[in-house]
């Protein structure tokens, strides 16, 4: 009897841990059976390409969530980064693509410093501070794009390399995505900074008692978040070969959702990199599959929403403390 109960609990916790991955597999199978074309390598690679945008932004946003804060400005930061890059190259202010790219990322990293100045140093609740700053950024985006979709024929070919290029048949965007995953996974799992980022989100007062500089860790988290999310903007603009005002906002909700859903994966209740990736894949599989089925587009939002609410609802039920920064106070 006791054995049975224990086994049941083990299976239960296994399902929770791998719910997202199981959902990924089942959906691929279902779509594959219904529409065999879905399983073509080219379509699967397309799914990963789409997931790489949501996933990259989700990992960035997730790092701020890990320290127990929230950055609602990730969409504006992504669009702004792409706009800065496109504008500086288009107007010819920057001679080389790589220089322009680095400059844009440095600027957006400073935006992370600004976010954390208000959220961490002054103590404005982070989601309010970042929301306010994102409005300013929206304004700058409109200024740079002259309030229309940005496109310059003077852009170098490299502009679309990340988004559209291929190396040995594999889309560059996928390779870049894997590299970002690997780097952030290494940071979070292996380094001291990574373990402090998670520890700060879990128990701030404990960290200050053992001599960890909580503010510094949070500021670094905001900067990493802005740079990673900014880079996701560059990936997106490179993929479409233009900069739309809605570039970031079209990704943000899915990205935030991926980070939160990801916290049900592997280590329930804790934001983590692999979880975010698996969750981003899930969103991508759903939207791709729905399109493939020829089903109406709104179904995609409904299904994603249902999966998200089930996932976070489950965490709320099983873990008293919930997700660190879902309690946005």
């Amino acid at each position: 009897m006791a054995d049975k109960g224990k086994k049941g609990a083990e299976i239960g916790s296994f399902i929770t841990k791998y719910f997202l991955l199981i959902a990924d597999a089942i959906l691929i199978l279902v779509f594959g059976i219904l529409r065999p074309g879905f399983l073509q390598p080219i379509n699967l690679l397309d799914i990963i390409s789409t997931a790489s945008l949501v996933g990259t932004m989700g990992m960035g946003a997730g790092i701020v969530m890990m320290v127990g804060e929230m950055n609602f400005g990730v969409a504006a930061e992504a669009t702004l980064t792409a706009s800065i890059l496109g504008w500086s190259l288009g107007k010819g202010y920057m001679p080389a693509y790589v220089a322009a790219l680095l400059a844009a990322l440095v600027l957006i990293g400073l935006m992370g410093v600004l976010d954390s100045f208000f959220a961490v140093i002054l103590g404005v609740p982070a989601f309010i501070a970042t929301l306010a700053i994102s409005k300013i950024n929206d304004g700058f985006v409109r200024l740079l794009t002259e309030n229309k979709t940005m496109y310059y024929s003077s852009w170098p070919e490299l502009f679309t390399f990340i988004g559209q290029g291929k190396i040995a048949g594999i889309p560059v965007i996928t390779i870049v995505f894997v590299l970002i995953i690997a780097a952030l996974w290494f940071l979070m799992e292996k380094t001291r900074l990574g373990s402090y980022i998670e520890a700060v989100g879990n128990n701030q007062s404990c960290c200050s008692h053992v001599g960890i500089n909580v503010r510094k860790v949070k500021i670094i988290a905001f900067v990493i978040c802005s740079v990673v999310c900014g880079f996701s903007g560059i990936m997106a603009s490179s993929k479409t070969a233009n900069v739309m005002n809605t570039l970031g906002s079209s990704l943000m909700m899915d990205a935030m959702a991926a980070a939160m859903m990801g916290a049900t994966f592997l280590r329930p209740g804790r934001f983590n990199i692999p979880g975010t990736v698996v969750a981003a894949l899930l969103t991508s599989i759903i939207s791709n599959g729905i399109i493939f089925m020829g089903a109406p587009d709104f179904l995609k939002d409904m299904i994603s929403g249902v999966i998200l609410i089930i996932a976070v609802g489950y965490i709320a039920m099983t873990r008293k403390e919930g997700l660190p920064s879902v309690k946005m106070g």
Binding site: E198, N202, N203, R267, G269
Partner: peptide
């Protein structure tokens, strides 16, 4: 007096 531990560690 208060516990100063990181729960998941």
């Amino acid at each position: 007096q208060e516990r100063n531990l990181v729960g998941y560690m």
